[in-house]
Simulated assay, not measured.
Amino acid sequence: MDRLQAMTAFVRVVETGSFSQAARQIGVGQPAISKTIAQLEDRLQVRLLIRSTHGLSPTDAGVRFYERAKTAIHEADEAELEAKGAGAGLSGRLRVSAATTFARLMIVPSLPDFLATNPDLEVDIVLDDRVIDLVSEGIDIALRMGELSDSAAVARKIATGCRSVVATPAYLNQYGIPQVPADIATHQAVVYTQLGNSWIFRRDGTEASVAVSGRVRFTAAEGIRAAVKADMGLAVTSDWMFWPELQNGEVLRVLKDWTLPDIDLWAVYPTGRLASAKARAFADFVETIVG
C-alpha cells in the first residue's frame, strides 16, 4: 500500500463524506477507495471512520490522522516542486471554480499563456455563478467577487474592480443620458438580483441612494449582458462584465462623475486545506490579468 496515496484517499473521503465522491475526484472506482481505507485502518490498528446510514464521519483518531495527513500531502507536493527546481512547470490537475461571465471574458482568453508555461498541468474550470461547496466538488481554488459569505474561508484578495452604470448608445439616444443618480428613476433598469434594487452613489462626500425599477431581473451575469446589449435599459455592473464592449464602444458608461462601491475579487481555497502550489500559481496568474 502506497502510504501517500492512502492518505490522499482518506483525506478526500473525510472532506467529501463519501467513498463514491472521493473515488470520483481521484479517478478510481469506489471499491478501490473502500479497500484502501480498510488497509489503512488495518495498518494503523485503529478505526478511522464511523460508517452509518447517515454517511461517514471520522473518529477521534481519524480527526487527528486527517490533520496530519493533510500536512504530509502538502509537504510532499511542495518537496516535489522544490526538487524539480523553481523554473519547472506545475503538473497534475487543477480544479477551478469561477463565475461564468467573468471566466469567459477575463480568464479564458489568457488561459493559453498559463497552460503554455505549465505544459504538464490540466485545468478543469467549473463555471457557476452560485457559491458552490469547494470540498464536495473537489475544487482547489475558487474565484469569487464581492463580500465573502463565509468568514472562516481561506481567502486572498487578488484584485479590486470598479462598478459602473452602463447602457448601449441606442438606448441612451432613445431615452436620454442620466445626469444625476436621481434621473435613473425615470429609466428602465436591468436588475442583477445579487446586487439588489438599490444603488448607492458617492461624489465629493455626498451619497445618493437610488431605488431602481425594471421589468427584467436576472440571477446570472450572462442575462445582464444580453439584456443591456439588446437596448433594454441601464445596469450596474463591474467593468469586468462588459470589458470588451466598453473598449469598443458597444456599451457606454454614464454618471462617470459619481462612484459606486468597488468590487473585490478573491481567491478562495477549501476551508481546512492548505493552498497547493498549483492553486497559488493560478491566483498569481489571475492577478496579472485583472490586477
Rank of each mutant, 00 (worst) to 15 (best):
D239V: 13
V11C: 08
I184V: 13
P244H: 05
G17Q: 01
S20H: 04
I263W: 00
F102G: 10
A182H: 09
V96K: 02
A23V: 07
L148E: 06
Q39A: 12
I50G: 06
S209G: 04
P178F: 05
A38D: 09
K229G: 02
I177E: 14
A277K: 08
E78P: 00
A22Q: 06
L44E: 11
L127Q: 02
G161Y: 05
P112T: 11
F114N: 13
D133E: 12
F282H: 07
L255A: 03
P244C: 03
A170W: 02
K229W: 00
T259Q: 14
E287T: 15
D133H: 07
G17P: 02
A185T: 15
I200H: 08
D239F: 00
A189E: 04
V135S: 13
I141L: 13
P31R: 10
D133L: 02
A267K: 01
S110N: 11
R130D: 13
E122F: 08
P169D: 06
P261Y: 06
D239P: 02
G176L: 09
I50Y: 05
L172V: 01
L234C: 05
R202C: 04
Q179M: 07
E222I: 09
I224A: 07
A76M: 07
A185E: 14
L172T: 05
E207P: 01
Q30P: 15
K70E: 12
K256A: 14
G146K: 01
A152G: 05
R64C: 04
Q188P: 03
A235L: 04
R217V: 09
L134Q: 08
K229D: 04
V210E: 10
P169N: 02
I50S: 09
Q25N: 04
G29H: 12
T288F: 06
A185V: 15
A155H: 07
P178V: 07
A142Q: 00
D60F: 12
V126G: 00
T237M: 11
T271G: 04
A226H: 15
L246R: 14
G214A: 06
A83T: 11
L111V: 12
A76G: 04
L172G: 04
L172C: 01
A208Q: 14
A211S: 12
Y192L: 13
L265Q: 01
A32W: 08
A99N: 11
T117S: 15
R3T: 11
A38E: 12
R130Q: 12
W258H: 01
W240G: 03
V165T: 07
I139D: 00
N197S: 08
I125A: 03
A279C: 03
L255P: 01
A220N: 14
